[in-house]
Design a protein around this nucleic acid. Structure first.
Length: 323
DNA sequence: TGCCCATGGTAAT
DNA sequence: TTACCCTGGGCAG
């Protein structure tokens, strides 16, 4: 159940350990056997995330498109990189092959926390390290749609909404339909695309933020939190939101997304003391202003937080501060 | 142990 | 709007 930050982190894991390597692709579960065969024994050229989607390019001009949806997850095992190195690679990988630079880093810092280890890591909405490996590669666990295997690392995909092989033009068509992503578009261009897409629409801003053609990567948590942080009523039609507010929303999304990629979790609170900040990260509590806080007092004004259904998804907001 | 729910999205109605 | 995809965690019993 990942929002955009998780997908960018997963793409980085692929950039670090799969790009430049020949990959054996299989479908232990069977459902993706034909697709896997078309990319197997080819070299991964690039790993790229746009919004909640990930695209892996192989050297035969085919791409693997993966959308994790609600339940999807990647299980990595073998030589993988934990938090520290992914964060330090921030901004250096994603759409570019950084193989040389990154492997140099790893060789010179083998003792650091983030150095590759023979272990397991589950990457979904959250990340969970597993037990050390006895054998490599490990047996697939559960229904694995696709397994990508190199000599040193394996990635198992389970429960995705989408997993398909596309040509380059088809990948471009998918990306063209998506709204801007702060980690893909340049700051100015992304902001302008976002403003242009919202400003003409009568749709409530609370729905527009969830619309992946308006802005890519925002999910239910970031939606609620961004609106609160802007003190914006979710029901305000897009075209009535002041342009300056839209520009501020975009900048705040950029900030929260980058922080999420760095931390590997959605931290949307500001102004905490260092102690409380660390406690919030460790406990998974008190990380949000309004999300999942129905009936609890607003952290600013004390008014009970309201939850209502909007297009079938739960929308949380403070009826006092956001109007 | 089993039920409900979830940070998505699509297709059918 | 609703059903469905399909998985894991939390929690009631």
């Amino acid at each position: 159940m990942p929002e955009g930050h998780s997908v960018h982190r997963i793409a980085r894991q692929f950039a670090l350990h799969f790009v430049g390597k020949t990959v054996t692709a299989t479908s232990p579960q069977g459902r993706f056997a034909a697709g896997a065969a078309t990319i197997s024994e080819h070299t991964l050229v690039q790993a790229k995330a746009v919004g909640k989607q990930m695209f892996l390019e192989f050297d035969n001009d085919l791409w693997l498109r993966v959308h994790l949806g609600m339940y999807g997850a990647w299980d990595f095992a073998g030589e993988i990189t934990a938090d520290a190195t992914i964060a330090s690679a921030n901004g250096r990988i994603g759409q570019t092959n950084q193989r040389g630079t990154v492997s140099d880093d790893n060789e010179s810092s083998n003792s650091s926390i983030g150095a590759p280890r023979r272990t397991r890591l589950r990457m979904s909405e959250s990340e969970k390290p597993g037990e050390e490996l006895a054998v490599f590669p490990p047996e697939p666990i559960g229904a694995v749609r696709v397994r990508l295997l190199t000599e040193t690392t394996v990635a198992d995909l389970r429960g995705p909404t989408a997993c398909e092989v596309l040509r380059a033009d088809e990948v471009q068509a998918v990306i063209d339909k998506l709204g801007p992503d702060p980690l893909v578009d340049s700051p100015k261009k992304g902001e302008q695309r976002f403003v242009d897409r919202v400003r003409t629409k009568p749709t409530p801003i609370g729905l527009l933020l969830m619309d992946q053609t308006v802005v890519a990567g925002i999910g239910n948590v970031y939606r609620a939190e961004l609106l609160f942080r802007a003190r914006l009523d979710p029901h305000t039609p897009g075209r009535l939101v002041p342009e300056e507010t839209l520009r501020a929303l975009w900048k705040d999304w950029t900030k929260l997304l980058k922080l999420g990629v760095q931390l590997g979790q959605m931290m949307t609170m500001d102004g905490l003391s260092p102690t409380k900040y660390q406690a919030a990260l460790a406990s998974r509590e008190d990380r949000h202003w309004v999300y999942h806080r129905t009936g609890e007092p607003c952290r600013v004004c004390g008014t009970p937080i309201v939850m209502e259904l909007a297009a079938g998804r739960k929308l949380y907001y403070c009826p006092m501060d956001q109007k």
